[in-house]
Nucleic acid binder design. Structure first.
Lengths: 223, 223
DNA sequence: CAGTGTGAACCACTTCACAGCC
DNA sequence: GGCTGTGAAGTGGTTCACACTG
């Protein structure tokens, strides 16, 4: 049921994945004091083709001016709205190893929409230590803090072995969106969203292409 | 010469991106002492559908046994070969902040094919310090070490502001595959491969879906 | 049989070509 | 005239249905 004709804009996943890039490009452009850009300029700054950018933006609405371009400030607001960045999302990070600390200190949050609201580690002896402004809490405090801070996004930066149980705990605490840095496939209920970032996968893909280049080169020599 | 004529299989990018996951799943399975798996079991472990897995593997060759499944050890070797992991790739990491240190210590390299061969930081005062077993070198040593170690993969873990110049230096040193953690679009010659990992983008995408859930819920209530 | 390998149908995304508008 | 917005065509990837085989 539901069926609701107009309001519910369907934005393709591929487009959603590029919007943050456009937003960053707009921020850069704005910092240079420019108030209007063409799709060509913005696309170059974001590393895509201009037709791609225009098609993507067309899914959000019609925010450009024909013959002129896009008003930087306005477009940034519209993209932010589409992504849900008009509210500030409280993020919890679990796992205070090097990676967790790096994430906790990451300034990329500044681009808007997020703040580190709580840090956790399974080692209780880290409790009380501060990373940045935020104290590290033991996992036992998760449910409590989730309630108090309204946590909705969880980041897993633990070793692979504990990732699933940490994930279960996050879900039990009401978190439905998880960013997983551990190299495991998490099992979650269907209403929970997981995204995985995996260094090993990225390196493997690079290695593949690097190998292809060698093969091409060999082939070139051979012929 | 040059070995093989017909060997040059065309493997789709989407398939390449999933192969590392299959490899990991196979490793897990092997550790549990299992020597044969069906596509169904392996697909579940890797978080994909079995038809997807079979189609992916069909791009590499025909390594299964009908009515039975895949021999774990053998399939792992074939996937490794396809990805180019039969050789060990020396990796350079630039930027010894929290993230760079986390990457340098990352055990995911262990899954095979990579080793951290050199570490760099633009701050010369870090030179000589060791992270893990590897000493941190000043950027001025890059060309020299690239030659000596045969560096082919570079990881950029610097702040956004220095990423492009670091990338230029890597390319000048002969590196043609780059993994970029800085939130910038790097400009590179066409024979250089760049992959970007961006925390902010991942969080933005999660925020988008989280917002969609709220909208769905509101809608549900409203109707 | 049980489970792989694959052509064919389907679907999502990208690119093109151009109409529409300032 | 210049640049946006978009239907239509093209491309690549996924899913289906089933032939094939140990």
């Amino acid at each position: 049921m539901s069926a609701d004709p107009a309001i519910r804009r369907e934005i393709p996943d591929a487009t959603v994945a590029r919007l943050p890039g456009y937003l960053r490009a707009l921020t850069d452009v704005a910092e240079r004091g420019i108030s209007s850009v063409s799709s060509e300029e913005l696309a170059t700054a974001a590393g895509v083709r201009s037709t791609q950018l225009r098609k993507d933006l067309s899914h959000l609405g019609s925010y450009g001016v024909r013959g002129v371009g896009y008003e930087v400030e306005h477009l940034a607001v519209e993209i932010s709205r589409a992504l849900g960045l008009t509210q500030d999302w409280p993020v919890a990070i679990v796992g205070m190893g090097n990676l967790g600390r790096a994430l906790a200190a990451y300034s990329g949050f500044a681009i808007g929409g997020f703040h580190v609201a709580a840090l956790f580690d399974e080692d209780p002896s880290l409790a009380g230590e501060h990373v940045g402004d935020v104290p590290v809490s033991p996992m036992t405090e998760l449910a409590l803090l989730a309630e108090a801070e309204g946590l909705s996004l969880g980041v897993i930066a633990t070793p692979a072995a504990s990732a699933q149980q940490v994930c279960d705990a996050l879900i039990a605490a009401g978190i439905r969106s998880v960013l997983n840095f551990a190299p495991v496939v998490l099992v979650v209920p269907p209403d929970v969203n997981v995204r995985r970032v995996d260094l090993a996968t990225e390196l493997h893909v690079l290695a593949f292409h690097e190998q292809q280049k060698s093969l091409d080169a060999d082939l070139g020599l051979a012929q």
